[in-house]
Structures are given as structure tokens and as C-alpha cells.
Design a protein around this nucleic acid. Structure first.
Length: 153
DNA sequence: GCCAACGTTGGC
DNA sequence: GCCAACGTTGGC
């Protein structure tokens, strides 16, 4: 069992969209390191912090769970998709994804600003300078602490 | 909208 | 394999 943080821009796909749909393919990851986490390390049942970037309120908005094995991101082969990649083929799909299911929406977002201020969260990948990975591993301690912060809002 | 930090591309 | 140019991310 591992813990992750996955970024999304709420104008594209928010925690409310995930709540409404219950489950979604996490398509459009076009970074090898992020893909490798999904392809090589994620297993069904892993816990996920859903993070809103480029938003009015930036921060962790709720919880999800990995609910499928990795499989090819078929958007890469859809010419009409923003995520189309001409190099992707059926034999070599290049890009992989997993399904993420909805677990909960926080009463209020745990803001990035606050995450940066908590000594308990020192060392989180999210707050490292220059870090822009859209999928990051999170320690159980940091995961639990952020869930705790959401309960105190 | 700005821009720092990264990642990718492509000529050599 | 180097590295300049370009594109993207994402906080501010």
C-alpha cells in the first residue's frame, strides 16, 4: 500500500467532477517519471491526495483511490484529443494511466500555503523548489497529517 | 500575465 | 552526446 499526490487543474477536472463521476481514467500524463509511477508502482487500493493546481485556492481538495491496474492511455491515439501523441501505437502505447475513484471531498481545501507552514510536512516533495511532477509519492505520515488538517477545518 | 525551473527536441 | 532553443508547469 502506497500513498500518492496527483495534481489536476480544477478548470479541467476538479474533485467535484470526480465526485459526480465516481471514477475516472487519469488520462493525459505526458511525463515519463509520472508515467513510471503509475506503470510500475501503483497498485489497486493505493490512496491518493487530489491536488488542485492553477486554481483560485491551490491545495489538496479531497481523497481518491487507485482502482485499476495500469493500462494504455488511449487518448494518446485519439487525433481529436489534446493528449494525442503521434508516436503512440497500439503495440507501443508509450503512455499509461490508471483509474482513480472518488473517496471523499474535504469540507475545505487544505491550502498549499498552510502545507508549507507545517513543520510536520517538511520534506514533502510537493514543496520542494522547482518540483512540478504531477504525480508524486507521499509518505504515510504526511498523508495522514494532511487528512488530519482537513478534519480541523 | 509574468517568469523560474524543468523537460524535450533537434541540429551539429 | 552536447546544448541552444523552445515548450510546459504552476505559483504568484
Amino acid at each position: 500500500m502506497q500513498y500518492w499526490l496527483m495534481k489536476t487543474e480544477p478548470t479541467t477536472y476538479s474533485i467535484d467532477d470526480l465526485k459526480r463521476e465516481g471514477k475516472t481514467p487519469w488520462e493525459g500524463i505526458r511525463n515519463y517519471q509520472a508515467r513510471n509511477f503509475m506503470r510500475d508502482s501503483m497498485v489497486i487500493g493505493d490512496k491518493v491526495l487530489i491536488y488542485h493546481s492553477n486554481a483560485a485556492t491551490i491545495g489538496v481538495s479531497g481523497l481518491g483511490e487507485v482502482s485499476s491496474k495500469p493500462y494504455p492511455d488511449f487518448f494518446a491515439r485519439d487525433k481529436d484529443s489534446n493528449y494525442f501523441d503521434p508516436k503512440a501505437t497500439e503495440e507501443k502505447p508509450i503512455w499509461m494511466m490508471v483509474d482513480i475513484s472518488f473517496k471523499s471531498k474535504f469540507n475545505s481545501i487544505v491550502p498549499l500555503q498552510q502545507i508549507k507552514l507545517c513543520p510536520e510536512l517538511d520534506g514533502m516533495m510537493l514543496i520542494k523548489k522547482g518540483m512540478r511532477l504531477s504525480i508524486q509519492p507521499v509518505s504515510k505520515e504526511h498523508y495522514d497529517f494532511i487528512v488530519g488538517m482537513s478534519n480541523n477545518c
